[in-house]
Structure formats: structure tokens, C-alpha cells
Design a binder for these strands. Structure first.
Lengths: 133, 133
DNA sequence: AATGTATGTTAGGTTTTCTAACATGGTATT
DNA sequence: AATACCATGTTAGAAAACCTAACATACATT
């Protein structure tokens, strides 16, 4: 798990902004979660919290929906794509252990404090992620 | 106003995640707004919406507070720093006209759709912004 | 002792999000 | 044509998050 992956998987956004960014309805987003296309984190009070990764995925889903693909198909496609990423990554990412929100935030704080380094880039990352420079 | 500036000024985060990212209390954040150190956007229902720029600024403020500088001083420092950015930017950014949320989101959508380009970078941007890759 | 500054705390109200249920317009199937 | 299924809309009631405004407090300055 690289630093950038951690950043991209930080649960930050409540559903409102995600709706606007993706132009999906709350109903749609929840339905996709119900069918396990995404798994946003939850706040203490049970509100969904989306990461940049989640938002990227939602935009992909939207695309696939537009192409007439149904839930099952999209689920498979997202799964396959994820496999590819893991494969091309070199390391099979062991069991991709879960980081707690607190761990993620601690990591984040460290990176903020240690400011000044230049940015590094994975060549192919999707959609939303690219927006934050 | 460059594309990246637009991205960095998108009002996305409600106060909750901002509190966690900055480790500031809601009271502090609102107090800084009251003293015009930041000017987060508002949702239709009057909730504060912070941009990456706002979060960066809050982290700077936190730093300056730690150095014992008071509101007035911080305000000046932020102002001066902003002047510098504008100056080194080349263009004095006319009157930096306000973009509506909708304009920003339209722009955002365009950038998302037109995927694939490589990332570009301004060499010196602060803090949080760097986290989103 | 009195004032000022930055922040904490509380109260009451509004917005946002939650789940669950029912409704609806297409498509596919019988 | 009737039925079933899929993706989404809509509604209701409850809970969480956020809002402003006011008062409280700790510390520094006068």
C-alpha cells in the first residue's frame, strides 16, 4: 500500500458533494453500494464517507451504466480491473489489510507536516484523483 | 485562473472532515472565518463547504497560531502571501471573478470526461493539495 | 481589578443523511 | 397481454451534523 493509495482511500466526503461531483442521485449511489459495487466507509454516526477512490469508481460505474451494462456485469468488470491493477503493481498486496480511519489520518498528518517534497505520480490513475493538484 | 486553481477552490468538504484533517475545533474554524482569515462557500442550506485551498489555509493558520501570532497578524501574513502568489503568477488575475458552484462543477465534469492526460504541476503548492494524487 | 483574546460549552433550530417501504417506467419472459 | 424484474424515484420518520447566538473561561495585558 503506497502513500498515494492511502491518500486516495481516505474517507472524507459525505454523500452530498459526491452526488454533485458524480451527478448521481443518492438513491443510485446507495443502490450501487447495496450491490457491492462500492463500499464507502461510515462515520461514527453511520453517515457514508467516500474516498477519492470511491468517487472514481462511481464515475466508472456511471459510464458502464450508460453502456447498458447491469449490476452483475459492472461488478465483474470492476473486479477484473482491480485484479489488473494489482498484477501490474508488482506486489500482490498480501491481504490488503484494512487501515482504521485513525491510522489513515495519522499518516495524513505526518505527510502534511513533512511538507515540501515534490509530487510523485502513478501514470494511470483515474478521473477524480487527477483533479487534486 | 488555471484549471488546477479551479479544482483547488471547489467547495467540497463540510466542516466535519475539515476538523479531522486540520485537528481544529469547529469553534476555531468559525472564529477564523469570523475574522476573515478564510471564507468557505455555503451550501444551499447554509452549511459551510471548504475547498482544498481553505484547508491549506487552515493548516497555515494553525501553524501561525502556534507561533503566537494573533488574528490581525495572520490576516496580514495570509494577505501578503497571496499577493506574492499573484505576482509570481505573471498575470495579476484581473479581479479574480467569482465562479459559481455550478460553473466550477461544469468545469470539473469536463475535466473528468476528458480523461487520460498527464498531470501537470505548479511547483509550490501547499499542504493538503499535495495529498491528492 | 478590568479588559481583551482565543476558545469551550450549551441551547434551540435547521439541514442533511439514514433506512425502509412503496411507486413507476422499461425490458424481458411467459 | 399479463407478469416479473431491474434500476430508479419518492416518501416518511428518525438520527446525525451543522448552524447561530449567547454565555463561560483561561490567560495575557493594561
Amino acid at each position: 500500500m503506497t502513500g498515494s493509495n492511502i491518500r486516495r482511500s481516505m474517507p472524507l466526503f459525505p454523500i452530498g458533494p459526491v452526488m454533485q461531483l458524480t451527478e448521481l442521485s443518492a438513491r443510485q449511489i446507495r443502490y450501487y453500494e447495496e450491490h457491492q459495487l462500492i463500499s464507502p466507509a461510515r462515520s461514527e454516526g453511520n453517515r457514508r464517507l467516500f474516498s477519492l477512490n470511491d468517487i472514481d469508481k462511481l464515475l466508472e460505474i456511471k459510464d458502464l451504466i450508460d453502456q447498458g451494462i447491469n449490476m452483475a456485469g459492472i461488478k465483474q468488470l470492476l473486479f477484473v480491473k482491480n485484479q489488473e491493477v494489482i498484477a501490474s503493481d508488482g506486489k500482490p498486496q498480501k491481504s490488503e489489510r484494512e487501515l482504521s480511519n485513525d491510522e489513515i489520518r495519522r499518516h495524513l498528518r505526518k505527510e502534511i507536516v513533512q511538507a515540501g517534497r515534490f509530487n510523485q505520480h502513478a501514470a494511470s490513475q483515474g478521473n477524480i484523483t487527477r483533479l487534486f493538484h
